[in-house]
Amino acid sequence: MGRVITVTSGKGGVGKTTTTANLGTALAMGGARVAVVDADIGLRNLDIVMGLENRIVFDLVDVIEGRARLKQALIKDKRFPDLCLLPAAQTRDKDAVSHDDMVALTNQLRAEFDYVLIDSPAGIESGFRNAIAGADEVLIVTTPEVSAVRDADRIIGLTEAFEKGHPRLVLNRVKTRMMKAGEMMSIEDVLQILAIDLVGVVPDDEMIVTSTNRGEVAVMDKSSRAGKAFVDIARRVRGEQVPFMALDEGGGVFDRLFGMFGRRPRGSER
């Protein structure tokens, strides 16, 4: 039985789709059978980020409404035989899918794949609730900015209220130079504020833009720093102990991170 992992955020544009594409590819490169699911109904995105946009025949809503079987709708990534994409519908809206539909769909996928990654829409509405409906585990993506962190806090509370366990954090678009100058919140600051465990820190990296332009994900490029960070996240998701790399030769940013942060009990949400 595979694991269903939802990648979500609260605020939009912080890197959920980038994280899903890279983490999914990295897990598949490591030999796992992986399905990535675009649950951002109406705003199809994961396909183009992964370079699979020309191969879509059926989508998630076609499967839910019985027009296509799951096998027909899943697109195999030719570069990685164990990687499949289930695209979002582009011309429907989030109301085309219910909580129970998503639970049924993820159960079906869980039987076929080792990892099922769900790319969630932003926000706290039904799209988000559907995206976590079948999740065994939730990853929260944020950047070290006040608005993104505030929204992440809200999402963490909701995730726990829906009994999806303790989510883990992907801190994306970190700019080491700004952090060192005290002009960007530090990793410690964000972890302490959110009282959450870290699963990875991803540097802000222009190569994300270049690789996305080509429809290739960063983990395919050995020289990409962000790609390296996503490979490390994949290893941690698999359960390996991977030290948090220093973002530059100056080092030291991550040295004190291990085991420092306890969890804060949260009030109930909803």
Binding site: R150, D153, R154, G157, A181, G182, E183, D189, I193
Partner: peptide, 18 residues
């Protein structure tokens, strides 16, 4: 430092949010 301000402001607003 702006990061200190960000931290303080966030901690305060989150008390209310939570």
């Amino acid at each position: 430092r702006s990061s200190d301000l960000a931290r303080e402001r966030l901690l305060t607003v989150l008390v209310h949010d939570r």
